[in-house]
Design a binder for these strands. Structure first.
Lengths: 230, 230
DNA sequence: ATAAAACGGTAACCATAGTTACCAAAAACG
DNA sequence: CGTTTTTGGTAACTATGGTTACCGTTTTAT
């Protein structure tokens, strides 16, 4: 029944250490629902009760947060094998503050939260493993938010950009790389406006600290960048 | 051996649903360490490996984050029965980005993370309950960080203050209340400077929207405040 | 009780980034 | 292909909030 997705699911952190056979059993026991969405369709709107734990099977979803002023702040982008809703799935009486939207046409599997925690007879060992995995996943998620807080707490735009570029440098191990976000998205992520971002990046180029064209960026003066990130 | 602390510990969310007798057993099995700290003493410095899960037995600790520029951003204040380190306790090879400092003289219990997850024979039922509690706790923590992100994402100082005041109003159910943070701390929390905070609060008073003297605040125009928080 | 330290308000000046609007380049679509 | 849509750079003007410094008040320590 779920054979089609076993391969993707085995890459999901929730099923870490569970082999295909056991995974089949677990799925059969969890009775997950699978839905498909078109690009830009809502998967979950803010305030709506999430149908449990979500796992992206194909395509991509954007997890974002809309504040009262209507500005959308991107939290993460999830692709195949990645999860969302892990923050609220185990908390009763908490409506999710996040919104989930299909960034591309996608298929999503929903796991009922209650079944994830309670062991059943046929595959209790796997269930226990799942719980341990879940604990790590949620901890990890908290840490991601923690880093998000770090970004938002940076006061100057220049320092935000510098920090972001240094992180890309560290990630790719290269001084030339492609930006993983478009200008608009980066501006959202750093919580500034796009023209301000463009202006500041222009200045960094003028000063010979970086060079860029569209999404490709080259760091020319790593030390200056480090100083400015503080 | 841990009798002295049973009462406090039973208020800790980690031991929710575990009665005193079982708690004694669990503690005996977990073999926690108890340390005392003086006011302003470091409990855990940034980057240091946390000794596991921390539970405040008496006094208060401040969990904060120091960014590269040296600005301290308060994450939470934990009192008796409250925990810290729950974010990193279950993640190997992750150094904690947070710092923990004694806000007042305090006593702290540390639980080895590994023992929390793995069942032992004598009190397996209680251990299982602990794991479920832990899952809820970490989820809750993630949600708190999520709210923190919401605050930081607010762009104008006026809206930040309005949001904060509205939250106090909601919390106390009263239009007159005591601020739980000093000006410096509030400025830290909202990620702005103290003079700017004072200036803006002064303006709000001038406009007849609020009234305040030191830490006591009275909301005079709730609707305006709501509009400004957006 | 008194000195010292911490806290909080204020004001002038300045730097940073938001706003708006316009245009060019690139990508998507038929 | 050519057209439409999306994306991104730029510039003038404005608003917001940071900086610094000073001073009175409140709290803490001795």
């Amino acid at each position: 029944m779920y054979q089609k997705w076993i391969k993707v699911l085995s890459t999901c952190a929730l099923f870490n250490g569970i082999n295909s056979d056991n995974l089949q059993g677990v799925l059969h026991c969890l009775k997950p629902k699978v839905n498909s969405y078109e690009k830009n369709e809502w998967v979950t709107a803010a305030g709506e009760k999430i149908a449990g734990l979500g796992i992206v099977l194909s395509g991509e979803v954007v997890v974002a947060q809309e504040n009262a002023a209507g500005n959308r702040v991107i939290i993460t982008v999830d692709g195949p094998g990645e999860m969302f809703g892990e923050m609220t799935a185990f908390l009763e009486s908490v409506e999710s503050p996040a919104t989930v939207m299909a960034r591309a046409a996608c298929t999503v599997m929903f796991l009922p939260a209650g079944k994830v925690v309670s062991c059943c007879e046929n595959s209790c060992a796997s269930h226990k493993l799942m719980i341990t995995n879940m604990l790590k996943i949620v901890s990890e998620k908290a840490l991601v938010l923690h880093r998000k807080v770090e970004y938002l707490a940076i006061k100057s735009l220049r320092a935000k950009i510098s920090t972001f570029l240094l992180e890309q440098h560290k990630r790719t191990g290269n001084t030339t790389f492609m930006m993983p976000l478009k200008r608009n998205e980066l501006a959202d992520f750093l919580n500034v406006t796009r023209p301000s971002l463009s202006r500041e990046m222009g200045k960094l180029m003028e000063e010979g600290i970086i060079e860029f064209h569209m999404s490709s960026v080259k760091i020319k003066d790593l030390d200056s960048l480090r100083t400015m990130a503080e």
